[in-house]
Amino acid sequence: MIQSTPKIRIRGLCKAFGPKIVLDGIDLDVMPGTSMVIIGGSGSGKSVLLRCILGLIPADAGTIEIDGVNVLTLPPRRREEVIETIGMLFQNGALFDSLSVWENVAFGLLAAGRRHGRRPSRAEARATAGRMLEQVGLDPSVGALSPAELSGGMQKRVGLARAIAGQPDILFFDEPTTGLDPIMGAVIDGLIVDCVRKLGSTAIAITHDMASAQRIGDQAAMLYKGKLIWQGPAASLLNSGNPMVDQFTHGRREGPISMELRR
């Protein structure tokens, strides 16, 4: 049976920084178990959208419903509980450099355990971190290293292991392949798809890497000047029929999207 209630439902979401309007009445539905890829140029508001959903940036107007509950009006404690169900892979990994790799991976588990009064022992947390590292194709011995000792690709994988360690219902990926070579990008995409399928999570990924978008996404949407100008299957990204999307996905200089360059 197909569930009709969206896992994430956004209506009229607005955000501006001073006079600059970044999100201008975003409407978006993400159905349970699907992967939504949001594409758009640099500075188009993709990261701001994710941060508004996570509550890292307060929205100016609109609603963000997760499982039918508007998280923007929830009291802080209840909102923290909702955020606990979301895993996030940051663009640059955002690993805590004062902690070892396994402590990074187990951080959320220990924090959630502390909140709920059933904190796992450090040995248990380390064992879980080892399993998560294996799941993203890393040897558990990597857990003893510091994040600074890892390559960019390994840091992304550790970030992914940290994001999935709490078995979240929702996963966010902020430009997961940026800064990686094409092969490592494909590896990370493959791991993301595997993890999302294994957990049965709902995912939102933001990227401007078209190959990555098609590998990760079931659905896709394009953000331009604060508005979602197109939504459709990720498979049709390269032949969407929308001139703006076509220009963006094919990387054409000429077209309806004009880059604001000072001449």
């Binding site: 996570l54 890292l56 923290e80 955020i83 979301i86 955002a94 805590f96 004062s98 959320g108 909140r115």
Partner: peptide
Amino acid sequence: AEIGTMRVTDQIDALTTLST
């Protein structure tokens, strides 16, 4: 310097997403 670096490298945001 330590907390500032954590801020500009998203580590502080990461703390929030990890129930902290």
